[in-house]
Each structure stands twice: as structure tokens, then as C-alpha cells.
Design a protein around this nucleic acid. Structure first.
Lengths: 122, 122
DNA sequence: CAGAATCCTATACGATACTG
DNA sequence: CAGTATCGTATAGGATTCTG
């Protein structure tokens, strides 16, 4: 008796697992949902941006936080840092294949929030 | 020449808009991606939970943060608080229709992160 | 049981200045 | 240009206590 292909509640699929304090997913979740994580990732959707472009695109991000966010996302394998050894420096950021998978899941969420936000915040 | 139904990069659909510092979406995004926001929302997927169940389910959340997170999510219209006026108190939390929409978008992301996390953190 | 109130601390975050 | 280093603060967040 094969189970139906019904989508089960997450709680049933991962009894206790994903809500455990030391579940590895919490670390990645924290990185992605960090203050600037989603914005930086979405900003890189479908394009390559230089440091300064990224800084200007994601309004309000400080240099420190942009650097920190990019380092984390690069270490997680979501963002590719491509530094050209020229003077003045030229560094390009883009999504890795894994990063693209992630952003593909992030975009519907982000679009929905953008659409709903005005009526929620008013 | 009607444009193709191609999914355009977000940056093209919302030139500058969504990355503006005062875009309303930032507020909602902050609420959802707050430290415990995603976890609480996902915990309520497909079920109703009492305060204490929620507290035990989402391991590590303090009473203060659970209360704060629930209040925010309720104010945003994602979570329904149903208080039964009995002694001792009995309060149930569940998703509103809007909350269910949100969680439907959150779940694929969360599942993906749960699956990828071990190899990323490892 | 379901929180609110209080207190306290870590650290996330920003502003500024500096550098290869 | 693309960052790093330093410093200072706000506030997010936790532990504890209290209460209807």
C-alpha cells in the first residue's frame, strides 16, 4: 500500500527534526534570512553586479554589512566572487548554481511580500 | 509585438522600487525573516497549536521572543490567535488564509534549506 | 496556562576613517 | 575601486520573576 503523493505537513515529514535547536538548517536559515541576505541574493537575480553597484542597489546597506553578508553567502556557496587583478580593483558578484536554486525559491516569496506589503503595512 | 511570458529578473520588473530603503516590503520581510518568524510560521503549517506546544516545538525560543513573534505575525494578519476564556487559559494559534499563502511559499524554501544544510555546514 | 514585566547582556549594526 | 579596521551604540534577545 504505497502512500499517496500527498504533500504532508512538514511536521509529519520531519518529526521534531527541523525544529531542533541544533538542526544544521538553522544556521543556513539564519544566513539567508539575515538582515541583508534576501535583498542581496535577490539583487543578484539574473545579473552580475560589482561591489559598488550592489552597494547602490541595496539601499541602506552599510559597507560593513555588505561585506559581511557577501562573505557569508560566498562561504555557503550561494555567491561567486570574481576578482579581476587590475588597478583599480574590479570585483564581480553573481549567483552560483546553488545560489540560483535558492533564489528561484526566494523570488516567489519576495514577490508575494512586495505585493502584500502595502495592504499589510498600510 | 506582445512581450513573451518570460519571467523577467525582478530588477527589471521593479526598477529600483523593491530595493528602496523605505519600500514597505522591507518591514514585512523583516517580520517574516526575523529570528523566529519562519520557524513559528512553518510550525503552524497544517495544524493548530497552543502556546505551550508552540514553545516546545520551536526549540530554543524564549517566552519573550515567542510572544513578540506571535504578536507581530498576528498584527500582520498571518497568524490567528484564538483565546478560550476558561481557567486555566487555553489559547490556540493557527494560520490565517493569508498566512497559509505565505507558508505555502515558505515551505519549498525551508525544505530546500533543510536538505542542503548538512552539506553546506558539514 | 499563557503570557507580561523587568533586568541584563551580547552582538548586530552603522558611521567613520583608512588602505592596497 | 573594493574593501578592512576601529569604535560606539542600539536593540535584539535571553533569563528570571510575577500574575490573572
Amino acid at each position: 500500500m504505497a502512500a499517496r503523493n500527498k504533500v504532508l505537513p512538514l511536521a509529519d515529514l520531519f518529526p521534531n527534526g527541523v525544529f531542533e535547536a541544533n538542526c544544521p538548517s538553522r544556521v543556513v536559515l539564519d544566513h539567508v534570512t539575515s538582515k541583508w541576505g534576501v535583498l542581496v541574493l535577490v539583487a543578484l537575480d539574473g545579473r552580475t553586479l560589482r561591489w559598488s553597484e550592489l552597494r547602490r542597489t541595496v539601499e541602506g546597506v552599510s559597507e560593513k554589512m555588505l561585506a559581511q553578508t557577501l562573505r557569508t553567502l560566498e562561504a555557503d556557496g550561494f555567491v561567486l566572487r570574481d576578482a579581476h587583478p587590475v588597478i583599480p580593483p574590479h570585483v564581480e558578484y553573481s549567483l552560483t548554481p546553488t545560489g540560483r536554486e535558492l533564489v528561484d525559491l526566494l523570488l516567489p516569496l519576495f514577490r508575494w511580500i512586495v505585493e502584500q506589503a502595502p495592504s499589510i503595512i498600510g
